[in-house]
Design a protein around this nucleic acid. Sequence first.
RNA 1: GCCGCUGUAGCUCAGUGGUAGAGCGCACCCUUGGUAAGGGUGAGGUCAUGGGUUCAAUCCCCAUCAGCGGCUCCA
Length: 691
Amino acid sequence: MPTITLPDGSTREFDKPVIARDVAASIGKRLAADALGCKVDGELHDLSTVLDRDCSLSIVTPKRRDGGLDPDGLFLIRHSAAHVMAEAIQRIVPGALLVYGPPLDTGFYYDIRFPEDRPLREGDFEAIEAEMARIVAEDRGFSRYELPHDEGMRKLQAEGSKYKLDNALRAHEAGSPTLSWYATGTPGENWEDLCRGPHVPSTGRIGAFRVMSLASSYWHGDENSDRLTRVYGTAFPTQADLDAHLAQIEEARHRDHRVLGKQLHLFHIDEAVGQGLVLWTPNGAIIRKELQDWIGEHLHQMGYSDVFCPHIGKLDLYKTSGHFPYYAESQFVPLMEREFLKGVADDGCSCAQLSNMLATGEIDGYLLKPMNCPHHVKIYASQPRSYRDLPVRLSEFGTVYRWEQSGELNGMTRVRCFTVDDAHLFVREDQIGQEVMGCLSLVKLAFTTLGLSDFRVRVGLRDPDSGKYVGNPEVWDKAEAACREAARSLGATVSEEPGEAAFYGPKIDFIVKDVIGREWQLGTVQVDYNLPERFDLSYVGADNRAHRPVMIHRAPFGSFERFVAVLIEHFAGAFPTWLSPEQARVLPVSEKSFEYAQEVLGRLKAARVRATADLGNDRLQAKIKVAAEMKIPYLLVVGPRDQEHATVSVRVRGIQKDLGAMPLEVFVRELESEIASRGVSPMVGVEGARV
RNA sequence: GCCGCUGUAGCUCAGUGGUAGAGCGCACCCUUGGUAAGGGUGAGGUCAUGGGUUCAAUCCCCAUCAGCGGCUCCA
């Protein structure tokens, strides 16, 4: 006699076991028609699930009440689409062995082993989609059947796919007493796949789908294991949803910082210089410099002191800090002293021996710094500190070098040399809360000024069951409480993640959502008990005894490289005026107005506006087109009429029309004020925006 | 690092076993035009690099370098 509790809290009683689908039908015809699956006590199941005891039940449909796509619905659709795609592929390429096909946030994939003489190519996509469309049109039911483990294994052994046998063994090890299959149609007659499910009721419910791309992968992610082909696809409840998704991909492509970086001349990566080494060209340098100056002003106000450090340091320094040899793999090979190398050679040391010495850290030399902290620690330690001196806040736009694997490098987001807007605070334990708060408010200010106001905060706490952490537990408790409280005070979504702390202290990460909904992990604040210990740092307390300070590492932007890349994509290259490499361009309507254009340009430059004048012999329309492509915030068209009245005709980026003439002096004044206030969008001359 | 794909003019990209093309950009000329490309002429390429096959290689083969998509990794 199951009593079933529905999401609204109401209950329904049945006098015998009931199928979820029938419960849906008892609620409403429309719901039953829309249903894709169900959630029983929070766990996703097939709609055909039999409910034989008390439980909570919610029916999963493609859309939520608010009209948004339901993640559970998408899961079912995509998981099922993966089956349909696999069936289609096996029809087209006999002998293709299925491995594993899970849904993803944006679609699904299926890892498949193709026969060596018949690899899958992008040219096959059309045929696969056509085959999938046929299977969907047939609207065959997904039917589940189970076999006891032993019987199931015999069936799989008979079929002979080691991949499926492996999946089955893994399911068994994970505690599943039976094996389940899903047939698209009738078991024994139609195509089927070993699968735990759940799936939508029938192939016709998959909606709109698309085979997206090919990649290679390894079985179990192990590079020594079999090489598989990963076929990516995506599926949505309706064609409109799929179209919106494809449009978003297209939009992301248009915003790609690598494309815009080239088009807007922001940065350059040159083969001759090296992989992952960014050259900031003048336009990009302006953006970086503006950000740096701006954050620098705030640091100054907040009591930070600037420091500068060399880009290398002795290996011993990094042995003390613990970075070498422990993280040697992600560092450039040490710069070895000539004498040391000579000595090694004189001893008849082989390359293998040298390599071994590198691995164990028995080596002398210098390291390109992978982090700024050891240098800053030494600045702290360079003089005796009193409790009255703390907090000591040392900041540096410090450049670091890391040996990222070549396959990981990507534009400006993954590089081998980057500059961190770094700072290290040396504080007393009683100051941790306040100082963490100060760091967080700076990070928040940085993001909100740039219009990145949609962010969440992740507080990484220690795993109470693990002993890998340094520092004593009471101090940890206090530091975690301080981080928690500081994070909550920001007014953003805060998630706490036990086990996500660094071994040396709790940390707070900012995860920012850009205008097209992608998340980026940027700013970070970390409390550190470890380095002060390793370097034996101290200060003299009010009790005239030595005490250990605590360090706080923080970087609001993370690195300039990644941050600017995110800004490029966030703004699609259309930067706020204060960041724009070129803030205004003067466009004379003809040669007759060149002189006045120069005059206007001179006035702008006197106001320290970054401006140019286009004195080419193109027509005005062409000059506007070119300037618009460079995403310049203000275009000032000047002709004889403007000259006569000392005006400029303003055209603002994003508004595809002439906003009319305004006195040059008024324009300059308002532009100066916009730049000074660091407005996100250009507003001068825009109706209703004048102050 | 691994797998796959790619590398032709400053940019985007066609193309061919007999040493190469377009559009945009650039230079010059005509045009002096009031809000998203007027017209003409011209310059510009060791076809990523190094080997090999061939009478002949930008094209086929191998290696290297780099980019892209993934995998793996990420203090």
